[in-house]
Write a protein that binds this DNA or RNA. Structure first.
Length: 494
RNA sequence: GGCCCCAUCGUCUAGCGGUCUAGGACGCUGGCCUCUCACGCCGGAAACAUGGGUUCGAGUCCCAUUGGGGUCACCA
């Protein structure tokens, strides 16, 4: 394969959801697979729709995933459009600027070339005229669209006007889609579309072709929603005498409801995912698997990023649209969490403990961490699980103490006896606690399950915790004993 | 509506004419393990949208139907 250069070209109109980032991943994977470059280009030709902060969001999320564009907006470019911030990356590159609103001159130049060559023309039809035309067409049940009225009018360049591409109506056109194979239009049905708006800014159709060519993009990877407008782009390439890149259209990713992914889907954006306690490598892995599989009979679905890079190919892309299965992503995240080494787990959990205001001495948390690590799917599940280690009054789910025929009197008995035994232990170790408490259960004639449930609630307040003896050992004898004592008192007033 | 794209378990998928009484994973479910919850292990239910071809043979190739989706802007 000739030199591969791909790009991620979002328009800064809001927050990208994971489906959008998936396209970025694929473009990045393809470039890295072939030792090429991955560029980031900002498509902000529609100023009114650009939202402040959106570029920062994109850059920061890519960074979270550990994806560094080889070329992209420099800090100076960001400053020029007033979207720089403290700590903004300074990417840059030889084909800049990488922000379309900074490339206006070039688009106008190409538009003029197209006019000079007879492939485009100026049009001064007003929105009102177009509107009326459209209404008449609808009334006649015709296909609505611009009639081409100005094609032969030689509209002056002085007055306000747009530039339109002449689209041959009867011509057939086809191209070889990178994931779908040959796609053919027996006849192009599109009307003469606008390339340059009356304010002098380009539409997507012009800007994308010019930039992909100028930036030497070898593979254009984008969502299927662009498939229908590909003929326009092909015509522009042809008119300019440029070789079109390989164009591949990816399937969309829908929510569980089968509808487009949206904010309501839960962790629809990477930021939501991060806040919920997903690991970036797990999200990257999972999202890459929506619409892509290694093929060749492989069942593998856990990939390091290097494996993803070495195995990725356009052939593995499934052209059918997919559904974002959050439940499976959680499973995969749990797997990744379990595979973290404990020191890393502790480090990544810290911000979540802080956010939940769960403050535990480092040593204590380090001791319980391995036990917690294998019990959570999301980092946000950690704080509630270790909360009981905090030095603060406990709220107990007292009712949960009474299982399998255990009543207040029996619970009280279990607690009292356990307390006595724990007090006498030579050392407050897991094995000794284990022996002591099992001994109490046997002595009093209870099964360990229900008996331990009483102790669990008494000491941790909860029904779901890390293993009991370990939890006790980590908490320390003094606090275990005082909590049992508190629980005994609570039972007395019932 | 015109044009274009798509179609294997609920979901993500393997399958690129015979080895498919269709494999894996998540989820669901029965069991084991077990101090709760997880993990782990063993088992189960669950799919080739329909109809025509082509072929000795079709989940795999072709066509149609049906059903989804996209697109027809001075938005991307």
């Amino acid at each position: 394969m000739s030199h591969v250069r791909t790009r991620f070209a979002p328009s800064p109109t809001g927050f990208q959801h994971l489906g959008g980032f998936r396209t970025a991943f694929f473009a990045w994977l393809l470039a890295k697979r072939h030792g090429g470059e991955f560029l980031l280009r900002i498509e902000d030709t529609d100023r009114e729709r650009s939202v402040p902060g959106a570029i920062r969001f994109i850059l920061e999320e890519l960074a979270w995933f550990g994806i560094q564009p080889d070329e992209g907006p420099s800090k100076a470019e960001l400053e020029q459009i007033g979207e720089s911030w403290e700590g903004a990356p300074d990417i840059g590159g030889p084909c800049g600027p990488y922000i379309q609103s900074l490339r206006m001159v070039r688009y106008r130049e190409v538009a003029e070339e197209l006019i000079a060559k007879g492939f485009a023309y100026r049009c001064d039809c007003t929105p009102q005229m177009l509107e009326r035309e459209r209404n008449e067409q609808m009334a006649r049940k015709e296909l609505p669209g611009y009639s081409g009225y100005c094609r032969t009018r030689n509209v002056s360049a002085d007055a306000p006007h747009v530039v339109r591409l002449k689209i041959p109506q009867k011509r057939a056109i086809s191209f070889n889609d990178g994931v779908r194979g040959k796609v053919t239009w027996e006849q192009i049905q599109l009307r003469d579309t606008v390339l340059l708006k009356s304010d002098g800014s380009p539409t997507y159709h012009l800007a994308v072709v010019v930039d992909d060519h100028d930036m030497k993009i070898s593979h254009v990877l984008r969502g299927v929603e662009w498939l229908s407008s590909t003929p326009i782009h092909l015509l522009v390439y042809e008119a300019l005498g440029w070789e079109p890149p390989i164009i591949a259209h990816f399937p969309v990713v829908n929510g569980p409801d089968g509808k487009k992914l949206s904010k309501r889907t839960g962790a629809a954006t990477s930021r939501d995912a991060r806040e919920k306690g997903f690991l970036p490598e797990a999200v990257l892995n999972f999202v890459s698997l929506i619409g892509w599989a290694p093929g060749e009979g492989s069942d593998q679905e856990i990939f390091t990023r290097d494996e993803l890079i070495s195995k990725f190919s356009l052939e593995g892309i499934n052209p059918a649209s997919g559904v974002f299965d959050m439940i499976k992503m959680e499973w995969m995240n749990g797997l990744y969490i379990r595979n973290l080494d404990t020191a890393d787990f502790i480090k990544r959990t810290a911000p979540f403990l802080k956010a939940a205001e769960v403050v535990i001495p480092d040593e204590m948390f380090a001791a319980i961490a391995p036990l917690v690590q294998e019990r959570v799917k999301l980092l946000t599940e950690v704080p509630p699980m270790v909360e009981f280690l905090m030095d603060k009054p406990l709220e107990r789910q007292i009712d949960a103490m009474f299982q399998k025929g255990i009543d207040v009197a029996k619970a009280s008995e279990i607690l009292t006896r356990s307390k006595a035994c724990l007090e006498q232990l030579k050392e407050f170790s897991v094995t000794q606690i284990d022996q002591a408490l099992r001994g109490v259960a046997v002595e009093l004639g209870f099964k360990p399950g229900p008996a331990f449930a009483v102790l669990r609630v008494a000491v941790t307040g909860k029904t779901v915790t890390p293993p009991l003896f370990e939890s006790f050992a980590v908490l320390g004898r003094d606090r275990v004993l005082s909590r049992i004592a508190e629980a005994i008192v609570l039972l007395k007033v019932m």
